[in-house]
Structure formats: C-alpha cells, structure tokens
Design a protein around this nucleic acid. Structure first.
Lengths: 125, 125
DNA sequence: CGGCATCCTAGTTGATACTG
DNA sequence: CAGTATCAACTAGGATGCCG
C-alpha cells in the first residue's frame, strides 16, 4: 500500500501529528529516550540517569510512551521484582531526530544564555 | 577558539541545555519556526499560519525567542503599524533539527495512533 | 495592526508517604 | 524494587477587552 501519510500537517489545529510532536518535546520524553538508547534499563536505573525526575512522573512518561508503541515494558516475575524498559523498533527511529535536538541544545546553550543576558541588559538593566 | 561546550549535559538536573531543549519542544515554538522558515513574516500572518494560536500566546512565544537571540523583531513606523519577525542566523540553525522532528511526527503519526488504539483496546476495551 | 492587561481554569508537576 | 496514592502548588494557556 502507498503511504498517504501527507494528510498530516503540524501547522493545522487538531492534526494528530502536532500532538505527536508535542509528546516528543515534553519535559521528560527526550531524556527517557536518551537513557534507553543503549538498551534495556530498569526503572531505578532510569531514575538515577535522569536527574531530577520523580517516580510518579517517570511512570507517567513511561506509560505514555508504551501506549504510543515507542517502548516495551517487561516484568520479570522474580523476587525482588524486576521491570525493564526497552525501545521498540519504532522507538529507535526517534533516536536520530532526538539526538540532533540534544546536540543542538548542548552546542548552542552558551550562545543562547548570552543572548538572554544581552536582551535583559538592554531592556531593564 | 575551541568549543568547550561539552560541560552541558541534558541529563543533569539544572543544566541550561535542558531548558533550551525544553523551549524547542514547547507547544508553539516549533510551529513559529516553521512559519518563519521562508523569510520575514508579520504578526497577523503568523497568527493565520499557525492554527489555533491566540495572540497572547503568540506574543509570549515570539518574545521568548527574541530574548534567546533566535529571531529579530522589526517595527516599521508606519500607519497602520507593521511589525515583522525574522529568524536570526542562530535561529536558522535550529531549522534543520526541527524539520527532522516535524518530518518524523508526520510520517509516524498514523503508526502511533494505531498503537494507541491497540493499547487502549488491550487495557480497558 | 499589533499588541498588552486582566482574570481565570485546567492540566502538569512535585513532595511526601505508603504498598504489593 | 517498582511503583501508587494523596495533596499542594504552579503555571502554561485561553477568553476577553482596551490602547497606541
């Protein structure tokens, strides 16, 4: 079958692709992806990797991503319990785009910080 | 001069680069960038291009981006007033990363939508 | 035309404590 | 260990109306 995916346009109000894009950009999603890029990780591992995340919010984020088919959650019936999260095939395809954003952010952070200082100085000094 | 930019790590709580990344991912920022990619645009033009944005939020977004040095605001002293927004050089460098995200979102929207349906059906039908 | 001021709501985030 | 429950902000976002 052909793609016909170009009905989607993020500029249009209510277009699903816009919601998708927003999910990618939310506060914790990119960080979860980056934490999972090298393979499966346990809950507590993720919590440690992602500075400042609380268990509740981490759970929420993971659930959303699981729902969207971007990662899998595997429960190992052991004592103590073990749960692993792993990117799906679809999830792996986001890694590239996200890395680009991450790189840009890290590379230009100091420039932007300075632009802010300049702006603030000009406008209320 | 050398880069020394690698002090920044989005995984670290409080790292500025994380804030930057979040700004890129907020609700309207990417859409503003995409609306400005082909050159300067007026306020009302942007408002029309970006489905669902209110004037207040558009203004807020534009101000933030101006403060971050990503776009310039030019006032033409005419009657009626004309104000144009244009990406700065720095602003143009985000366009690439953002287009990648946009493309991914539009290309995979239907897959994700379906994953959601499947998930919801499995879990509460 | 291009905003700003005001008020308001509704969803998100967070701190803390507790459980299977 | 891997969450859930509860409660308390917080604040982004929206509706409306006025001004230079």
């Amino acid at each position: 079958m052909d793609t016909e995916a170009q009905d989607f346009d993020v500029m249009t109000l209510g277009c699903p692709s816009r919601v998708i894009m927003q999910r990618l950009g939310d506060k914790w999603t990119p960080l979860v992806f980056l934490a999972l890029k090298d393979g499966p990780r346990r809950f507590s591992h993720l919590r440690n990797d992602i500075g400042g995340v609380t268990p509740k919010v981490l759970t929420q984020t993971l659930r959303s991503l699981e729902r969207d088919g971007l990662l899998n959650r595997t429960i190992y019936p052991e004592v103590p319990p073990r749960v692993e999260y792993e990117l799906t095939e679809l999830g792996h395809t986001v890694l590239g785009p996200l890395e680009v954003i991450r790189a840009w952010s890290q590379d230009h952070a100091s420039l932007i910080l300075q632009a802010r200082d300049d702006y603030d100085e000009r406008n209320d000094a």
